[in-house]
């Protein structure tokens, strides 16, 4: 397990990007996933290790990354959570007066 992810919290954005990519592609190898998410390969591997420990993904015998039901649920919960919080924001109609 990577020390960067272990010591600090994983970047939600990176996790969301990986899950979104997996949602679109189902099974995918790590190199293709690194390209589609725009992540450096070693960084992706560290995140995949962390996500596998959390049961968000599984890596099959062929080395293909597969999104689990838990991973999908976490992503949907994250979207709902953000919507709940951002949805509460009320933006004033601003227009600076000169």
């Amino acid at each position: 397990m990577n020390s960067e992810i272990q010591s600090s919290k994983p970047d939600l954005y990176v996790v969301a990007r990986i899950i979104k990519s997996l949602k679109e592609k189902n099974k995918v190898n790590k190199t293709t996933l690194a390209i589609s998410t725009g992540l450096a390969y070693d960084k992706l591997v560290r995140y995949l290790d962390w996500m596998e420990n959390k049961s968000f993904i599984i890596i099959d015998e062929n080395g293909l990354v597969v999104l689990t039901k838990t991973g999908l649920e976490v992503y949907d919960e994250l979207v709902q959570w953000i919507l709940k919080h951002v949805g509460q924001l009320k933006f004033p109609r601003l227009r600076p007066r000169t």
């Binding site: 949907d76 979207v79 919507l83 951002v86 933006f91 601003l94 227009r95």
Partner: peptide
């Protein structure tokens, strides 16, 4: 739901542009 989040963030960013 994702579209709603994006729409809300767009609104936020537009407000911040005004700020």
């Amino acid at each position: 739901t994702e579209e709603k989040v994006i729409a809300k963030v767009r609104e936020l960013m537009e407000t911040l542009d005004e700020v």
